[in-house]
Each structure stands twice: as structure tokens, then as C-alpha cells.
Design a protein around this nucleic acid. Sequence first.
DNA 1: GCAAAAGTGTTGTTACTACACCCATGA
DNA 2: TCATGGGTGTAGTAACAACACTTTTGC
Lengths: 228, 228
Amino acid sequence: MAVSQNIKVAVDAVVFGYTSKEGLSVLLIKRNIPPFKDAWALPGGLVGDLESLEDAIHRELKEETGISINYLEQLYSFGQPNRDPRNRVISITYYGLVKPDAFELHADTDAADVAWFNIKNIPQLAFDHAEIIQTAHDRLKNKIQYQPLGFELLEEKFPFSELEKLYTTVLDRPIDRRNFKKKITGFGFLEETKEKQQLTGAGRPGNLFRFNEEKYFRLKKDGITFEV
Amino acid sequence: MAVSQNIKVAVDAVVFGYTSKEGLSVLLIKRNIPPFKDAWALPGGLVGDLESLEDAIHRELKEETGISINYLEQLYSFGQPNRDPRNRVISITYYGLVKPDAFELHADTDAADVAWFNIKNIPQLAFDHAEIIQTAHDRLKNKIQYQPLGFELLEEKFPFSELEKLYTTVLDRPIDRRNFKKKITGFGFLEETKEKQQLTGAGRPGNLFRFNEEKYFRLKKDGITFEV
DNA sequence: GCAAAAGTGTTGTTACTACACCCATGA
DNA sequence: TCATGGGTGTAGTAACAACACTTTTGC
């Protein structure tokens, strides 16, 4: 019906990182071009005419932040006519999970700077990016209730307390250690190794666990019922 | 980064209808322009430069099928470069739920025909629309597990067996009547009226129920745990 | 009176919640 | 020996699954 259309298509990503010291954080870039020059924003950009949406977001992440990420999932599409002050841009957003320590951040092409920001301490953002982060965070909190979580966010081997801290952080409330362990081990996607945690200060060292990838991803697909 | 971009933005909708005789069906239009002329397709079309995505899909539904629908939710965005043979079009898709009997279908502007097709009997479709319907159907089956369902699909007053049939149809398996009733009445979003069903053939007439809108939508928002 | 659909309770089993003390280590 | 964090079991309660017969109506 519309004879010609003048709308641009962008992709943006909310990349969550987790460390037990820092908690849950989000990867942001500092814009070096107007509008919102020098403001923090989500990594992302316009989609190329010949590339898929997934390729576009991976490319943008690589260019703007230096990270490459294998777990990325579509979140929502934002399309209010005035969300970009220049011209109409709709944004297809993704969210992903990574281990921050596994990457060196470097603001390569389009960005003046890149950094992790704790989810509780996000600065003023460009465009409607605050709303996008909010949506992604809600989705993550929701998702944790019917999918296992942790594989993409923890080291290969980790003490059980790391997983517990992760859940505490994402759910933002305390959980009962014994019940949590019963539940998690009941699902069977964790394997206990014979190794013990290297000590970092005082305290009894914990046994190290790892994910059984096959079972983990099957449960991720089939869904679980998770209440703690 | 891309200096100019040549991508069009469309919206498409998977509108589910339910009747107890026909089961679950999907609203389709017959295209009257190439490509895929005379093929069945989802209602939808290009987004206007100044309208929101939601306005666009409501407008297209009105134009192409004659229905207006108040429950519509974003589903997913499809953006493979080759999904439209003419040029690059990304589609932001929605899904909605209606009572088919409440509308007169009429193929107004862009469509040669409009019709309901049973979900088990969908014809060959244009573009990647079969995949979109699949995605919508999966979402519906999933959603039913943590949100109440029925308000948008049933008459104002209905015998309990109607709700039961709806769940049986959507879940595509039999459910235990007594346990189902216990569960549903436990949530408290149903109200029993004093009226009895008008008879349609033999059988004991059932009491009529209605939804308590306030409780229904609160539970829809908060989520429920549903297992039958 | 028979076919069709509605209505209704109980029991066994499983899953969840709440809760507190001892153990291994480093300093 | 003290501070820190890891590890473990039980009992009461609530939710779920399985299951069959009686009632009301039309024909």
C-alpha cells in the first residue's frame, strides 16, 4: 500500500555479563557521533542489505566492543516513530549472556569507549535503550524460571556456591542453600568433579562442578519448573 | 556504518480464532498481487513512515480482513535476506486471539479473499508464513502454561465444557475434567452464573460461567502455574 | 429407557518449605 | 582458636494424579 517507505532497520543487543564479585552487568558503548554523542548506549547499528539480522548483531558486537558471543536470542522489536530523533529507525533487539573475563573489550570502529555497567548502576542512556534493558532484564528473570541458567555465565568448573550466587543475583533475593541444591541436582544437568576449589581467603574449599552440556541444553529446550 | 540501506519493514499477524465446532483456526488472506499471487498468506503489509508498528498491524487487519482486534501481542521478527523474492523485507509479526463469530470477514483493499483455516489444515502459504504460524502456535501452547486463556476466545457466558474443549484443542490432548475444574476454579478468575446452557441436542445442560475480568487480567499479568 | 453430556470426592504419591549444626581451611 | 564459607537431613504440608458413578436432559 505505501508506495515508498523510509524506515531504517537496526539491531541492538543487551549483553549480560556475570562475575561473582561484580554481579550482573550490561555491556555499553559510548557514542562518538550524534545524536546523543558521548552518551552511553547499547551496542548495535544498521543492518546491511544482504546480511541476516543475526549476522548483523554479531558483526556490530565485534566492531563496537570486540566480543563475540555464541548465545544470543531475539528479545523484542521496538518501533515507535519518534524513538530516533533523526529519522524513523526500528530496532530489533537481542540479548545474550557471557563471561566478562573471557573477553578483552576494545572500542574498535564506531564507539568511543566500551564498558561493563552493573545492572543496578546503569547511566543515562541514548534513545529508548533504558527501556530495552528493562525488557531484557525482565525476560532474564522470567526465563530463569523455566530454563536452566549458568552455562553461558560461569567458568567450565565452579564451586556450587557460584551457581547459588548467580541465582541470588539474578533473582535479587536470598535462596535456601539446601533446597536449591536438592532442586538443581535433581535436574541432573550438573556433574560433580573430584577437584576442589582453589582457596581465595578463608573458608572450606568447595567441590567443583561442571555442566553436562547435553542434558543442560535438552532441559533448556524442554523447559523446567523452577521455584526457589 | 552502512551509508544507505534498502530494507522494507512489514508487519504480519497470526490471528487465532476458536469455536467449539471448528476448533482452532487461523485467519488468512488470498493475495491478489505478485509475488505469490493467488496464494494464501498472513494478513499484513508495509509499515507507514509515521505510524507505530501496532497501528500498522491494526490498520492492515482492518483493510485486508475487516476485523478489529483488541488483543494482539508481538511474536517475533523475521529477517532472512531472501524471505521476499522482490527485495529485502523484514517482518515484525504479531499474534492475536478472537472469536470468529464476532466478525464478518470481507476482503476489502489488498486481498482477493479472506477465510479461516483450521490449524490442522493450513494450505501452502506465501513467503515464510508457514514458519510464522508454527512459531505462533508454539507460543500459544507455551503461553497457556503460565497465563489464563479463554477470555478473548469464548463468548461472554459459556458452559464449563467450552473452556475444557478449548484447552483440549490448544494443548491437543485430553485432560481430566475433575482435576481441570479444581485447578481453574482454584484460580478464581471464573464466576458461576445462575443460568443454564441452552440445549443443543441431548445431554444435561451445564451451568454458565463468565470471566471475572479484573482477576483474569491480573493473573495474566502475574502468571499462573498451570499443569493439567 | 437409552444415549449424551454435566457434575462431583477421595486417596496415594510427590514435591515443596522451613529449618540448624558440623566440617575444612587460612590466618 | 577463631572467622569464613561449605556441606548435609528431616518432618510437616500442600499440590498433583488417578480414577467412576450419578444426574439431567432430548429423543
